[in-house]
């Protein structure tokens, strides 16, 4: 299968995984391994100065996985830029998953602030992976300012609803010249396979894996689904018809 290329860097896996909501760091690192993913997202928050802080990065092999800090919690462009710069200072990584979600209920991304932040970050040397609503015009505008990918949502973050934005994502895929990563709302392996069959270049999954009864098995199931879906896309699906088309010969029947 083709390799995924983002900002000139090649990846074998087309499944990115988030690290949130796992019941332990050990389970998180086992599930990441089972997913076959090469890109894992992390968030930034204040240190709790009253209590001991857990170092989750110790559970992620930085030689094996590209750490992709996100700007979750940012409500506007300024906060997202600040978080991105802090992440870069902490890790030396200039890749950032740009999220600007002022609405706490649906966590829908703010298109205006996301575009504004993307422009600032790209000028500052960042590789920007923006989380967006499935808006083809916005996707094009982001691509034009130089984002490395576009990441349209399938449905609200953590909702496990599957692909509710299918026709808009199809347009984004049709028009994009950067990789399209379907992010948020993929609740089942079949949802990930569907996105890949549609021609998405990759998917990002967190909640569906982390909160499954068996996260490692679910991570593996998503890995297989992403591979299957991509294979189906690259193989070139045959068309759909209303009538039956016999698979067996219509000649030589045992009758006169």
């Amino acid at each position: 299968m083709d390799r995924l290329v983002i900002a000139g860097r090649e990846f074998d896996s087309r499944l990115m995984v988030g690290t949130g909501k796992f019941s332990s760091n050990k389970l998180m690192s086992e599930a990441i391994a089972a997913s076959g993913s090469e890109i894992v997202t992390v968030a930034l928050r204040r240190v709790d100065i009253e209590n001991e802080n857990d170092d989750m990065l110790a559970a992620i092999d930085r030689g094996k996985y590209l750490l992709l800090p996100n700007t979750s919690g940012a409500r506007d462009a300024a906060e997202a830029v600040r978080l991105s710069r802090l992440a870069r200072a902490a890790t030396g990584i200039n890749w950032v998953k740009l999220e600007v979600t002022p609405d706490p209920y649906y966590l829908l991304p703010d298109p205006v602030e996301t575009l504004k932040a993307a422009e600032i970050l790209i000028k500052d040397g960042f590789v920007v992976l923006p989380y967006i609503n499935a808006d083809p015009i916005l996707a094009k505008k982001l691509e034009d300012v130089g984002t490395a990918v576009v990441m349209p949502l399938a449905s609200p973050i953590g909702s496990n609803q599957g692909i509710k934005t299918r026709s808009a994502i199809e347009i984004i895929i049709e028009q994009a010249s950067v990789p399209v990563v379907v992010d948020a709302g993929l609740g089942l392996p079949s949802h990930a396979a569907e996105a890949m069959e549609m021609g998405a270049d990759a998917v990002l999954v967190n909640t569906a894996i982390a909160t499954a009864e068996n996260p490692c098995l679910m991570a593996k199931a998503f890995r297989l689904a992403v591979e299957a879906g991509r294979g189906g896309y690259e193989a070139g699906a045959s068309g759909v018809s209303r009538e039956a088309n016999a698979s067996s010969p219509l000649t030589g029947f045992l009758r006169d």
Binding site: G20, V42, L44, I49, L86
Partner: peptide, 28 residues
């Protein structure tokens, strides 16, 4: 202003300073 880790021991804290300490946490 972001303080690089290599500068922590030479960065003097003064009365009235506002310090932010941030770390990585799990997230999607």
């Amino acid at each position: 202003d972001i303080i690089e880790r290599s500068k922590f021991s030479e960065t003097v804290i003064e009365d009235g300073d506002s310090v932010e300490l941030i770390r990585f946490v799990p997230g999607g």
